[in-house]
Amino acid sequence: MISLTSYLIISFCLFIAGMTVMIARKNIIAMLLGIELILNAAAINFVAYTRFVNQNLDGHVMSLFIIVIAAAEAAVGLAIVIRFFQIKETIHIDDATELQS
């Protein structure tokens, strides 16, 4: 039966996958993909709790804000990646060792 637990397990697996991507990959864009997965895992939890525990829609609004923040994060993150590439000609995370360019 579909219950809160099944959604929590899905969100848990999504979080694990996202963290694995973030740790194992050395490409900045691949790490950003992992961040998207993690944010989505959090958003699923909010909506699942709204459905199964308390029926007011605050969880939906929170998920909406998570989506907004994910979009803003992706835009700024990718802008930084492109700038980094213009300076260093690489997007390997181990090359990002200096604060100043």
């Binding site: 899905i10 993909l33 998207e36 699923i44 909506v47 939906h60 992706a74 835009a75």
Partner: peptide
């Protein structure tokens, strides 16, 4: 799809618009 099964229709559509249309193409 999970949002849709949870009855969050607006969120499901927002997810499609923002991610499919924006974030993934940006990536």
């Amino acid at each position: 799809g999970l949002y849709a099964t949870l009855g969050a229709d607006f969120l499901a559509a927002t997810q499609l618009v923002v991610y499919a249309g924006g974030v993934v193409i940006l990536m």
